[in-house]
């Protein structure tokens, strides 16, 4: 919360991404007495990144639970609480550790509503810091959303602005279905994206994409920190006379196909960019859907730009080598426009 001491009290207060999340969590805890938060080090410490700082002090250790290092138990217990009427927010200290709770997520939580023929909903949000480009190495850099997108019954959200972080978290915590909430840790305290995040009524429905930049030569669909890479690339391309439309998906499931289709109908070219590995990743899914539904609009084969099919290595040069870069995006965009 870096902007609490602004010189001009009437000036709009800009807040960072982490503050957006934090406000959403505090406001929902206040509005919903049936909400419980669970995670490792989220209470006494306030979370490894400070997202839940002050939460336990305000709402007590019964509702803000410092959990043992047991991801499967965190998710499983959340399922039990949801079965007994609670709304639960679970923190994965890093989203990478979600693999330790995998069975409870895909088999227990995600299928509960289905298995019970709609008797039991699972209002659970699992949030955690995600993403590479930060020297986190193999186990603190992952974007593993496609594991869960391939598991029916889970919604997946990934905001990249402070106001989306807040508004989508509010919506996720009011959703009757389980939501995986990918927070981009590189954006938590990034000063240049600070903005007003809205008040207590700031709720952004899941499944609505945002046009981050308008253009007519190429549609790029992306999410997370890749949105900023694509915007930077679009700036470069604009100087060459190529106008790129950048769509920030915000939510991968539900997916706003209508916004993508309208854009492709206008630009006739499509590129999906994400930092997850290529094979069976979400970029491939986007390409498939655009191929299926926009074929007659396309003037070039729809393409994807992703991480190589590798883990995320540690040393900076290695890491950047396997991840999509601004230069990669520019090159790929030029290729598609010239095709």
């Amino acid at each position: 919360m870096s902007n609490t001491l602004t010189a001009d009290p009437s000036a709009p207060i800009k807040k960072n991404y982490l503050t957006g999340l934090k406000e959403a969590i505090f406001e929902e805890m206040e509005a919903n007495p049936n909400m419980v938060c669970m995670g490792e080090d989220i209470g006494i410490l306030g979370g490894a990144f400070g997202v839940t700082e002050g939460l336990q002090e305000k709402y007590g250790s019964q509702r803000v639970i410092d959990m043992p290092i047991s991801e499967a138990c965190i998710i499983g217990a959340a399922v039990g609480m949801a079965l007994n009427g609670k709304t639960v927010l679970c923190e994965m200290q890093f989203i990478d550790f979600i693999s330790c709770g995998f069975d409870q997520i895909v088999n227990m939580m995600a299928t509960y509503h289905y298995r019970t023929a709609g008797e039991v909903s699972m209002p659970i949000v699992i949030r955690g810091p995600a993403g590479a480009y930060s020297g986190g190495a193999l186990y603190h850099s992952q974007m593993n959303e496609s594991w869960f997108l391939n598991s029916p019954g889970i919604k997946v959200v990934c905001p990249c602005t402070p106001s989306d972080a807040k508004g989508l978290m509010r919506a996720a915590l009011r959703d009757p279905d389980p939501v995986l909430f990918y927070e981009i840790k590189n954006l938590y305290r990034l000063g240049k994206i600070e903005e007003e995040v809205g008040g207590a009524d700031a709720i952004i429905p899941l499944g609505k994409a945002r046009i981050a930049r308008k253009g007519h030569d190429l549609t790029i669909a992306t999410y997370g920190q890749n949105v900023y890479h694509c915007l930077d690339a679009a700036g470069v391309l604009s100087t060459e006379g190529i106008e790129v439309e950048v769509i920030d998906l915000r939510s991968l499931k539900p997916l706003d196909m209508a916004t993508i289709q309208a854009s492709v109908a206008k630009t006739n070219r499509f590129l999906a960019v994400n930092e997850a590995p290529m094979t069976c990743g979400f970029a491939g899914e986007l390409v498939a859907r655009v191929t299926d539904t926009c074929f007659e609009h396309l003037d070039a084969p729809p393409a994807r730009l992703t991480r190589m099919d590798t883990p995320v290595p540690w040393a900076k040069a290695l890491e950047l080598h396997v991840l999509p870069s601004i230069e990669d995006i520019v090159r790929e965009a030029r290729r598609l426009v010239k095709y």
Binding site: V36, A72, C73, I75, G76, A77, A78, V79, G80, M81, A82, L83, N84, G85, K86, D103, Q104, N107, M108, T111, Y112, R115, T116, V120
Partner: peptide, 20 residues
């Protein structure tokens, strides 16, 4: 409580139920 096939998988759920 509704179980899955995954053995022991309902114990954390049970713990959550009584916590709530």
């Amino acid at each position: 409580i509704h179980s899955t096939s995954m053995l022991a998988g309902t114990i954390p759920v049970a713990a959550g139920v009584v916590y709530a």
